[in-house]
Design a binder for these strands. Structure first.
Lengths: 148, 148
DNA sequence: CTGCAACCTCAAGTTAACTTTAGGTCAAGC
DNA sequence: GCTTGACCTAAAGTTAACTTGAGGTTGCAG
């Protein structure tokens, strides 16, 4: 079946449905995370399925993925086609791996920290935690390349 | 005993010992995370104990704490005094709490994601994962206030 | 057909955590 | 005493992920 008029929603509606700001959605479109078609009066109309697409973006962000990585994940979803069960499963599984490794990293860090607490950590420099090769778990921005 | 000449190290040495860039250390000093005294020729000299201080900063960062939060943690360590076992233990314990809650959050997220994978997640909007109140785990920057 | 919320674009601002650049000064070895 | 690497300051640039602002257009409810 063809796309009916009803499947097309304006940006404000999409914003309300996803919890995103209108400006954020425009930004995502610039970045290529969603596409829209335009009305005669140059207003954006999105597919209803973009609610799902953007919800996914938000979830992935919660996991600490950057927009670039998310873009990569979504690239496998041909634009315009409504993603199906298998599509989401594949991507979700990939996210799960991401979470798993994050949990592992944190757990390792916690164990090391416990040793430190035990020893009073007066030699932090020699401490396991203070290992530059062990690039770790969390956020921050700018030229810091956490997680390389 | 008084501070001997040997306890004072120049910024380059501190950088090498901590793995930080010289510019980063200067920045930290501006932010108040470390203090230095100056030589006659206006060069910084740091206490040897600042190696430990800055190592701690790096560890805390790995856990996703912002410099502001770290500043708060370190505020309890009177500047100039070499932090002792108890000091580090107290702070380390506080870090451990931070890690624990991060792991919990991720674990919860993983469980939810598993449900999604199970159901194919065709109703992401109604999905547990897509719950705006459940502000989550990871990084990113700018006006996004992850973790409120 | 009019009013007004919702939409549009483009440029500039924001935040964190630094780095880079430009233009000097200091100190230690030869 | 000179050269050279380590230091200094101050200002501007960087990156991510958006937001804000200015100034103008659209579209639907009444």
């Amino acid at each position: 079946m063809a796309i009916t008029r009803n499947d097309l929603i304006p940006i404000g509606t999409l914003a309300r449905r996803t919890g995103l700001a209108v400006s954020a959605i425009r930004y995502y479109e610039d970045r290529g995370l969603v596409t829209s078609i335009r009305t005669g009066g140059n207003q954006r109309r999105f597919l209803r399925s973009d609610i799902r697409r953007l919800s996914f973006v938000q979830i992935a962000q919660k996991l600490g993925l950057g927009l670039a990585e998310i873009e990569r994940e979504l690239a496998a979803l041909p634009q315009g086609r409504t993603p199906n069960v298998l599509d989401w499963q594949r991507i979700s599984r990939s996210l799960r791996k991401e979470i798993d490794s994050r949990i592992q990293l944190l757990t390792r860090t916690r164990n090391k920290l416990d040793e430190c607490i035990g020893c009073g950590c007066l030699s932090l420099e020699r401490c396991q935690l203070y290992n530059k090769d062990d690039r770790a778990a969390a956020g921050g921005s700018g030229p810091r390349y956490v997680l390389d």
